[in-house]
């Protein structure tokens, strides 16, 4: 598994300062912490959509960002799949065209991820002709996941993909996520502030508070340390 190393510092216009560093080679790594702790900003930096004032990001031997050496790989070259809380499907395209958006833009990389298999695993076959506005919340999230996978990502970034769903739906989509991890082994960074989700998916947990890493370790040891295993962080 490729090792992701991250070390960035940035000060936002609102005054919030982020200064975080971590490394991980786990299958699923959770960024865990209260809202406003900087989790989402870290994802944007990894994806190349937010450039930190200073820092370095690398996946294996690929250097994506090194501000000192002036390296900043463009987002479309980093090949990361980004799944956000509010799915962000392209409203003017059918489900099929959404799914193939990234597929059609693969740059000749070999990827084991095939369209037919993604459609099968995520059970998207019946949705292909529909438009995002006619999908339920859970369906949208599955399509968004499929769209990311079909771009042939080296890394999946998930920003609270379940937060907008109600409890029974959460459980179903979570099981789809598990299937994806099992099937394709794409390294995944999973942002959440829900302890039970993190426990179910992640091997490794990085805990953030006010823009800094306060702890990192295996999921079991960290979450048992004083945080309610089923409730949210705030609870």
């Amino acid at each position: 598994m490729n090792r992701l190393s991250f070390r960035c510092a940035h000060r936002f216009a609102g005054g919030f300062a982020l200064d975080a560093a971590f490394e991980t080679d786990a299958q699923v790594t959770a960024l865990f912490g209260p809202s406003g702790s900087g989790k989402t900003s870290i994802l944007y930096m990894i994806a190349g959509l937010l450039r930190p004032r200073e820092g370095a990001i690398a996946l294996g031997k690929q250097i994506w960002l090194d501000t000192r050496r002036g390296i900043d790989t463009r987002p479309e070259r980093r090949r990361v799949g980004f799944v956000l809380q509010d799915h962000l499907l392209f409203p003017h395209l059918s489900v099929e065209r959404n799914l193939t958006y990234g597929l059609r833009r693969r740059r000749g990389e070999n990827s084991a991820i095939e369209a037919s298999r993604v459609i099968e695993v995520l059970e998207l076959g019946d949705l292909l002709a529909r438009y995002p506005r006619n999908l339920s919340g859970g369906e949208k999230q599955r399509v968004a996941l499929g769209r990311s996978l079909l771009s042939g990502p080296q890394l999946l970034l998930m920003d609270e993909p379940l937060a907008a769903l109600d409890a029974p739906l959460k459980d179903r989509v979570l099981s789809y996520l598990e299937r994806v991890v099992e099937e394709w082994h794409v390294p995944t960074i999973y942002v959440s502030h829900n302890a039970s989700e993190v426990r179910r998916l992640a091997e490794r947990v990085i805990m953030l508070e006010r823009g800094r890493v306060v702890h990192s370790g295996s999921a079991d040891e960290l979450l048992l340390e004083g945080y309610s295993p089923s409730g949210d962080w705030e609870a």
Binding site: G48, E76, R78, P91, H92, Y101, G102, S151
Partner: peptide, 23 residues
């Protein structure tokens, strides 16, 4: 939406013409 398009492999101009402008 444009950011998502970028992360899916679309260049800046591609993302503009395939997502932002049609919308």
């Amino acid at each position: 939406l444009e950011m998502v398009a970028r992360s899916l492999g679309a260049g800046r101009a591609d993302a503009f013409f395939s997502v932002t402008l049609p919308l």
